[in-house]
């Protein structure tokens, strides 16, 4: 589904990560791990086409990430939810449907309600983002990302700031979407509980190495990695970050 070849990324002239190679299979829940400041979110911004790489290539279903306006090929959840503050939750979720489909308003309304129900926000359709909590914003962001039923979903720190129950519910939702729809999911996170709950495979980035220091199944890395940084990360030892 996603192929990354010799990818070098950064800002301006500063290289953040270099010569990354990895593949994400269709239907996989793939986690990008690493400590704070290692470039996880920067990598995600490149994968979704918001930034152009300094070198190398990214291919999503054989094509480079979309950088022009047009029907989106994937859904994205940003760290803060990134809901449009002047729109209600329903209008936020309806926006991609109104823009990229020819559905009548009643059908759009039906889908919007279903998506909000899916993320546990039934009854909040007419609330503005400022009127709901951070966790709810995040869930509304997922509803908007799922509005067009994309085959691929990117999530930036989905569990960050959520209470433990909401976090587990979110993991369950992602797993259900993945198992029932075969939706490929790429998660940027450092929440170990979520990683073990949902990820089929992961890569671990390191700031000092400017690249990938481990790849594989999370449990395998936790139990068998020979790299002290990886063991420290998975076993919550202080030197991990």
């Amino acid at each position: 589904m996603i192929e990354v070849e010799r990818l070098t990324i950064g800002y301006g002239e500063r290289v953040v990560l270099e010569r990354l190679d990895f593949t994400i299979a269709r239907g996989q829940v793939f986690a990008i791990l690493g400590g704070s400041g290692c470039g996880k979110s920067t990598l995600l911004r490149h994968l979704i086409g918001l930034e152009a790489p300094m070198g190398g290539a990214i291919r999503i279903a054989g094509a480079p990430p979309v950088q022009e306006a047009g029907p989106p090929a994937y859904g994205v959840l940003f760290q803060s939810g990134a809901l449009f503050g002047s729109m209600t939750l329903a209008e936020n979720v309806a926006l991609p449907l109104r823009t990229w489909t020819t559905l009548d308003p009643q059908a759009v309304d039906t889908i919007v309600r279903a998506k909000l129900r899916l993320v546990g926000l039934e009854g909040f359709e007419n609330h503005l983002p400022a009127e709901i909590s951070g966790g709810m914003k995040k869930r509304a962001g997922i509803a908007r990302a799922l509005a067009l039923d994309p085959p691929l979903l990117f999530l930036d720190e989905p569990s960050a700031g959520l209470d433990p129950v909401s976090s587990v519910e979110l993991d369950q939702l992602l797993l259900t979407l993945n198992r029932s729809l075969g939706m490929t999911t790429v998660i940027v996170t450092h929440e170990l509980q979520s990683i073990f709950a949902v990820a089929d495979a992961c890569i671990m980035l390191d700031r000092g190495a400017r690249g990938i220091i481990a790849r594989g199944h999370p449990a395998e890395l936790r139990d068998h990695s020979g790299d002290a940084r990886v063991r420290a990360f998975f076993n919550r030892l202080p030197s991990a970050t």
């Binding site: 911004r45 086409g49 306006a69 989106p72 803060s80 926006l95 991609p96 823009t99 990229w100």
Partner: peptide, 21 residues
Amino acid sequence: GTMRVSEEIDALRTLGLDPFH
């Protein structure tokens, strides 16, 4: 500017919408 720093402009782009339009 606030939309920019709170990632709303990025969200617009990922929804396939041009911030100019």
